[in-house]
Design a protein around this nucleic acid. Structure first.
Lengths: 252, 252
DNA sequence: AAGATACATGCAGAAACGTGCAAGAACAGG
DNA sequence: CCTGTTCTTGCACGTTTCTGCATGTATCTT
């Protein structure tokens, strides 16, 4: 790992997550905390970050405000994400939904994975800009602030022109009888359009979503290849889904 | 293995992986690290790569350095940006190009401005997510890593379906005779498509770009409403543009 | 106030660097 | 075909830079 590469990594981290914890980065990159501190000192001297006790923050408070909402993914979500990232085959095409779980998946993709990622989320697209081998295709349309993704007629139409091996969808509710649901009709339609363009569709759902349902149905279970979750395999909802023939991938 | 062959290999590696580690390449090609270093020195002297301790990085590190470029908004660029932001009328529609200057404009837009922003840059879209009153429309397509915007046939086609009062374009070169230029053909085509959909098109150009030209022409001066720059009004290039009838907005 | 954590500094080993040099290949001219 | 020149390449050397550890100090937390 080159020093300059570390610097870029740190700046990327800063932009994406809004903060740097020296200890974590050292563990993540397998280098000493001293090196991280030295790097941060260098960056700070160039005005590229603001040094604080324990790590660093972006220089511009505006960035912080934005990044604050994109808090670091909780442990369960991260596990789900890395499990899902493992499904992506080199050379394959992946349709990636918006939302925090999908963002965690994007971050979990290996830096040098050569694949095509199709998304309607500008946030996810921005997060994947530093993956040199990844071909990115953005589905345009009106941006729904609520979820920060492109939805609506234009986006659905754009989705008709792509196809992929795998589609990873986040949802709000996962219920054995009701199916998969979300809180916005446009979003639901968009997710349907995405799922229709992939050979396989997997659902990303951390355990707290199991057994709940929202207002708008996305898809019935028949259209789904499987569910990726961090719930216990013996969870009541999980067992009912298994009985229904849904493949369950758990982090356990 | 010929020297020129090695050079090609190195540039390819740089493009594919975003970095070169001298030691690894030496082992891979079965040549000494000294030769690799010499090659890298040559490439760097031609401006084809950026030498760093341990290897080399792309010279225009769209991939790696993008985050860095985002954080630093030099004073001149910020002034240009806030001047441009002042052109946006409440209730109006704005087509905003990609690039660092355009990003600075996005950041300079008042938090509560009620307007529509159309862009082909996921980065800009992400930056405007926290403007509650701003309607966002994203133009999709293949993402060009070099500039981090959607370009190509799909993006140009998507642009045909929008229209706006104002278009703000960033360019690489601003030359009285040659016109407005940029370094990539696809980008140039996309900028043309954007400009064609707006009633008025203004160019964003910090002073160091004045009098320079790149490979691909974007638009002739006739199609441009004006130039927004931080250059001195008595600058030689500025005066020649004024003589040509181009409206100049300066921060002075 | 005390323990824990993060920090700066100095230091030593390791890695990368530049330079000079010699062996070899490619080439031009006789 | 031979010879001298030039260019390239790898090695050796001394120098610079980086990195992790140890030390003592500063800062945070409880």
């Amino acid at each position: 790992m080159l020093a300059a590469e570390r610097h870029d990594h740190l700046l990327g981290l800063l932009a994406r997550e809004g903060k740097i914890v020296a200890k974590d980065v050292a563990a993540e990159l397998g280098i000493s905390e001293d090196s991280v501190r030295r790097d941060l000192r260098d960056l700070a001297s160039e005005g590229l970050c603001q040094r604080v006790y324990g790590g660093a923050l972006p220089v511009s408070p505006a960035v912080v405000g934005y990044a604050a909402r994109q808090t670091v993914a909780p442990d369960g979500k991260r596990k789900v994400a890395s499990l899902a990232a493992g499904l992506v085959r080199p050379g394959g095409a992946l349709i990636l939904d918006g939302g925090t779980t999908a963002l965690a998946v994007a971050r979990a993709l290996p830096q040098n994975l050569a694949c095509t990622v199709i998304t309607h989320s500008p946030t996810i697209a921005a997060a994947l800009l530093d993956h040199p081998q990844t071909e990115l295709f953005l589905l345009g349309g009106r941006i729904f602030k609520h979820s920060a993704v492109a939805c609506g007629a234009a986006a659905v139409e754009a989705a008709q022109n792509v196809s992929a091996d795998l589609c990873l969808l986040g949802v709000t509710g996962v219920h054995p009888e009701v199916g998969l649901t979300t809180g916005d009709a446009e979003e639901a339609a968009m997710k349907r359009a995405l799922a229709a363009r992939a050979a396989d569709t997997y659902i990303l759902a951390s355990s707290e979503k199991l057994g709940t349902a929202s207002q708008f149905r996305v898809l019935p279970w028949e259209k789904i290849s499987g569910l990726i979750t961090d719930a216990d395999p013996h969870d009541a909802v999980v067992e009912r889904l298994t009985a229904r023939g849904v493949e369950i991938l758990t982090t356990g």
